[in-house]
């Protein structure tokens, strides 16, 4: 982990924050799920389309919050398109941080992880392998 707060805010991260590639809502969609980080007030509304073979065909989000949560969401959704849903379910925090390619300071890891846990819960709820919840919350 880097010691520096500013190093998280690389130009490409800020590009994803200010000008996201995957902003919007898919209509129709296979599943929709929301995420929230109560501590920061970050919110996400994610929609996914899954193919019959379990591939993620498209992923979009709308949301508000800090640069780290919103940029992480845009980057993650770009990465998981064409991925198997099972593969996404097996991703962990370290793999997500690798995808982001920045050193997220320890206190901000929850911001970065919000999109991953939201997508994973959305898929699991859709599959019926998890009890439905209205919104996935990171613990503060």
């Amino acid at each position: 982990m880097s010691d520096s707060g500013s190093s998280m805010y690389r130009q490409d991260i800020l590009e994803h924050y200010k000008n996201p590639d995957n902003f919007g809502t898919l209509e129709p969609h296979t599943l929709a799920h929301n995420g929230e980080n109560p501590l920061c007030g970050d919110t996400l509304e994610i929609t996914l389309n899954l193919g019959d073979d379990g591939t993620i065909e498209a992923a979009r989000f709308e949301g508000q919050g800090c640069a780290i949560s919103q940029a992480a969401t845009d980057i993650l959704l770009g990465r998981i398109e064409e991925m198997e849903a099972d593969e996404v379910l097996s991703m962990d925090e370290d793999q997500l941080l690798d995808v982001l390619g920045i050193d997220v300071s320890p206190l901000r890891v929850k911001c970065a992880c919000l999109p991953l846990v939201t997508v994973q819960d959305g898929i699991e709820i859709h599959r019926g392998t998890m009890d439905p919840v209205d919104v996935t919350r990171t613990e503060d």
Binding site: S4, G5, S6, Y9, C40, C66, A67, R108, C111
Partner: peptide, 13 residues
């Protein structure tokens, strides 16, 4: 235009 957590992270430097 700047979330307070982003502000706090940056001025922490």
């Amino acid at each position: 235009g700047i979330h307070p957590h982003d502000l706090a992270s940056i001025i922490d430097d």
